[in-house]
């Protein structure tokens, strides 16, 4: 009996929720046209089914992936689930169905469109995470390092080990404004928590001085005879720049900032 296709799954967006959808798809002989998380805005004409996350079912699916496909495949779909590719969750389901059919060899099928879609998605996620390891900027406020980023993929779990190692003795917070969550780090512990907004305003004289020094360096290091804004743009796309110190305009310690400042040293307020 062919699987029923004209319907939509909705789930809570968690990885376990997605694995529950995979379980349901097998149990009910259904191949949904779409699997939607709360982040997906699409409306569909098809009948939609709400799939409640069930940890027993998700654990069973994960065990199946590990034993019948491979542990690498389990890591791979976990990464794919953090990416932002079009129809991500349905593609993960399609990949797993192929994987359960052909076994561990599925990871080698790079030329197969069903595998390639996820591979490119994961590559995009990793590339963006790598970009943020460099392009992310901290502002120091009262001894805490704070940063806001607007990534397309959920990069926080990927950049966490890097920053938590590099700045292990610091307290820092990185706010992912696109996905409304934040990585919080204190010596010895780091966590990703939901967070809607984070406002960073520096007004400490030393902080502003360091920012000005960095802008000066960035401007001076360019060789006039080789100016090449197109190359600069392809290496450092415009979308990263609003959060980068060197592309922000010089702030002064003037009234404009002082008027919404409570303390003299700066403000870090989270909502």
């Amino acid at each position: 009996m062919p699987d029923r296709t004209n319907l939509v799954y909705r789930y809570d967006g968690s990885f376990d929720g997605l694995l529950t959808c995979v379980f349901e798809s097998y149990a009910r002989h259904e191949l949904p046209d779409a699997i939607l998380s709360p982040d997906d805005m699409q409306t569909m004409l098809f009948e939609s089914r709400r799939v409640e996350t069930d940890y027993v079912k998700s654990a069973r699916v994960l065990r199946g992936v590990m034993s019948r496909i491979s542990p690498e495949a389990a890591d791979f779909i976990r990464m794919a689930h953090l990416s932002c590719i079009f129809e991500r969750d349905r593609r993960i389901l399609v990949f797993l169905r192929l994987g359960f059919d052909v076994g561990p060899g599925v990871m080698n099928r790079l030329a197969d469109a069903r595998v390639n879609a996820l591979v490119s998605g994961v590559r995009y996620l990793e590339r963006e995470a790598h970009h943020y390891m460099g392009f992310l900027r901290f502002t120091e406020i009262d001894g805490v390092l704070a940063s806001v980023i607007q990534p397309k993929n959920r990069v926080l779990p990927l950049i966490d080990p890097h920053f938590s190692d590099r700045f292990n003795a610091e307290r820092f917070i990185i706010h992912d404004a696109s996905h409304r969550c934040a990585l919080m780090h204190m010596p010895g512990c780091s966590r990703i928590v939901p967070l809607d907004e984070l406002h960073i305003t520096a007004s400490n004289a030393r902080e502003l001085e360091i920012q000005a020094l960095w802008r000066k360096f960035h401007q001076t290091i360019a060789i006039e005879g080789r100016l090449n804004p197109q190359l600069q743009r392809s290496n450092l796309p415009l979308r990263f720049r609003p959060e980068m110190t060197e592309f922000q305009r010089e702030k002064t310690t003037g009234k404009e900032i002082g008027c919404h400042e409570k303390s003299a040293s700066g403000r870090l307020s989270a909502v």
Binding site: M133, G134, F135, H218, Q219, L227, L231, Q232, S234
Partner: peptide
């Protein structure tokens, strides 16, 4: 890791 790119694209 590249942290930024200057106006000459380097």
């Amino acid at each position: 890791i590249c942290h930024s790119f200057s106006a000459d694209g380097r």
